[in-house]
Structures are given as structure tokens and as C-alpha cells.
Nucleic acid binder design. Structure first.
Lengths: 188, 188
DNA sequence: TTCACTTTTTACCATTTGGTAAACAGCGGT
DNA sequence: ACCGCTGTTTACCAAATGGTAAAAAGTGAA
């Protein structure tokens, strides 16, 4: 759980005792590649912290096609927070793009922390805001051509390229898998 | 200020007295089309609530081209909140796409509300989360062709099309102004 | 190893989009 | 009205991308 502790401490100071209390409310969860952390059409039940692996955030457009909206990496919070908080069903899913190792908090445990740790809400909100901020930025720039988008993806996510199926990356970049394959050939 | 009061009440209950206190901390601000609410490279100094008008969120890519990332409409909070809170300079700007009428809160006033109104932090965080959520979703889908993106834009933002310059919409959709013009002709 | 299955690469052609340049339309100021 | 400025539309051709289909490469199980 050490990674989680270090992550939390980036947002504010807590005593060793308080940190132990937080960790005690989390559970380790391993999920296999392609399984879902939360599903489209369902209420998100957990907040997660990624210890190892990559999570893919996406949704189905009105033609039923899968759209990949973001990749979430190690040492990040992962949650569809607005729907988690409001207990509303989400239009998005969060899916393991690789085998993942997480620390998860049930809604009950997550809310309890607000009551038993003073200062937690402040830290929590900063963490959630960063989580949402990271989801919202750094996406591929729609006005750039596919080659540029791919090269920028390599810069922003160098560790992802060899870990997740190419089809997910193509979906993220907004091109067909064939086009991405051609782009990769032309770059060499 | 009635719009702001109604907006706040969607996130939690407050007394008439408390609402008046909140309103008293806000200032009316009118900004002309094309002027900036916050600028790229600078620290965001205010949280705003849009009473009338449309704000355009965007940034410069590494080639110096303007990228439009979102449009923010009436009755929404507008802020680069993560950088506002941390007093860090933003890579994005928020620009009036039409003449705008806002209610704005300085950082000082915004923070004072947390001390003088119990329950405000809870409401505030929900408002900020929604603000960030709206910024992050509903963007044009990169894998769809430009015509589809334009048609979906019309559905999602029917009131914007005749209010802002076409070049902003083209930038948002990721096409040149000429291509957008051709698309509009072909649809009729 | 071989087989079955999935992922990735290639190839071909039709379609879409970008780049450049010019014409056209709208609008405010004089 | 006329001018100058800005925003929008057109046109033409080159380049990028999608759709379809098939081949090649990788992977795991028997």
C-alpha cells in the first residue's frame, strides 16, 4: 500500500495513524485484462487507486461503436466520480487494458473516511479534482493528422504502447487499426 | 443574481440569509466578445458563473495553433479550477465567444465562503466537479467524420451555432473553416 | 510440433479532408 | 452610398484516411 500512502501525502499531511486508518479501509483487487472496473449503464461502486496496470476509459457512441476516451496509468485514482458520488448510472465504462492491481474503496468505506479523519475531505477533493483534470486533458488533438496524434501519444504515454492492444490505441487516436498500422510503418 | 441562486440550490439547501451572503461576495462582470476571462500562461484569478453568453476554452498546441476544447454555456460555472486552487499558471485560456455577463468571485472571496457558510464546501465541490465533468465530456468524437461531428454539435449545442464565429466551431470540430463550410453546403 | 484463434500488417481503391487562392457577403464608419 | 475590414463560401488539386479483403505474425492449448 506504500504507493497509495505516497500518493495521498502529495495532497496534504496526515499522521502515520491516520494513513493506516485509510489503508485499512481499502481492499486489494486484481482484475484481469479486458474485465471491467465499472460498466456503462451501471452505477460506479468503487473508487480505485492503480498500483499496477493500465485502465481504459471509454463509452459506446450512438452507433454502438467503442470509443476510447483516455488511458489511466499507475499511481492514479480511477473513478467515474460524479456518478459514483451521486449514485447515478454512468454512460462510460472503465476497463482493464492490462492485468491490473488496484486498491479499491467501497462507497461506504470512502464516505466513512470523511467522518473519521479530519482534513480528509480537503485531500480527497484535491485528489478527485486531479483525477478529473487528467481525464479531461491530454487527449489527442482532433485537428492534427493521425501521424501527429500517434507521435504525441508516444511522447505522453511511452509506457503504454507495448502493453495494450493496438486496437485500443487506434480507437483512442480516432483511426482504424489499419491506418494506425500504416502510420507505424511509414514512421520507421 | 437569481440564476446563480437557483444554480446553487441544485446542489444543496441553504437559507435565504446564506444565499444572500454568497451573492454579496460575487461581482457582476461584463466582458466583450474575444476578451479573455483567463489567459494561457497566467494564474486563473476568478471563478465565474455565466449569466449570459458563451465562453470558449482552448489552448495553443506546440505549433502555436489555437485549439478549441470546449464551449461553456449560460448557467454554468466557468473556471480552470485546478490551477485556480493551486495558484499555478494554466496552459489553457477561457475566452468570451460572445459578449458575456458573469458573476465572478475573487480567490479571496471564494475562500472566505468556506469559513462563513457551513455546508458550502460540500456544495462547492459538487459544483466544481460538475464543471470539470462537463468540460471533459461531450467533445467531438475523433473517430467520426467531420459531417457527423458537425451534426452532433448541432444537437448538443443548438444555441451556439448562430452566436459564435464559424472559425471557433471549425476549430472545435477539428476541421478547417473551408471544410466546415463545404460540409454545411452538402447537408442542405 | 501442429492446430485454432487472435492480433497485426499489407494492398487496393473510393472517399474525405487539407492547402491554397480567390470570390462573395455582411457590417460599421465616414 | 462608398470604402475597408472581417467572416464565409467556392473551386481545384494533392494528400490523408476509410472500407474491404487477405496475408502474415503471434499466442496458447492439446
Amino acid at each position: 500500500m506504500e504507493e497509495l500512502v505516497q500518493y495521498i501525502l502529495k495532497f496534504g499531511d496526515l499522521s502515520k495513524q491516520q494513513l493506516e486508518l485509510i489503508v485499512s479501509k481499502g481492499e486489494e483487487l486484481k482484475i484481469r485484462k479486458d474485465s471491467y472496473f465499472s460498466e456503462a449503464g451501471k452505477i460506479p461502486k468503487q473508487v480505485g487507486f492503480i498500483v499496477e496496470g493500465v485502465i481504459r476509459g471509454g463509452y459506446y457512441n450512438n452507433k454502438g461503436e467503442e470509443i476510447t476516451r483516455c488511458f489511466i496509468m499507475e499511481n492514479s485514482l480511477v473513478c467515474d466520480y460524479v456518478n459514483f458520488e451521486a449514485s447515478t448510472s454512468s454512460s462510460e465504462y472503465l476497463q482493464a487494458a492490462t492485468d491490473c492491481s488496484l486498491i479499491v474503496f467501497s462507497k461506504k468505506n470512502w464516505e466513512e473516511l470523511s467522518h473519521i479523519i479530519s482534513g480528509w475531505d480537503n485531500i480527497k477533493n484535491k485528489m478527485v479534482q486531479l483525477c478529473m483534470y487528467q481525464k479531461s486533458r491530454k487527449g489527442p488533438v482532433i485537428s492534427q493528422d493521425a501521424t501527429t496524434r500517434y507521435l504525441e501519444f508516444l511522447e505522453n504515454y511511452p509506457s503504454v504502447i507495448n502493453r495494450v492492444p493496438l486496437s485500443y490505441i487506434a480507437s483512442y487516436l480516432g483511426v482504424t487499426q489499419q491506418s494506425l498500422s500504416r502510420i507505424r510503418r511509414n514512421i520507421r
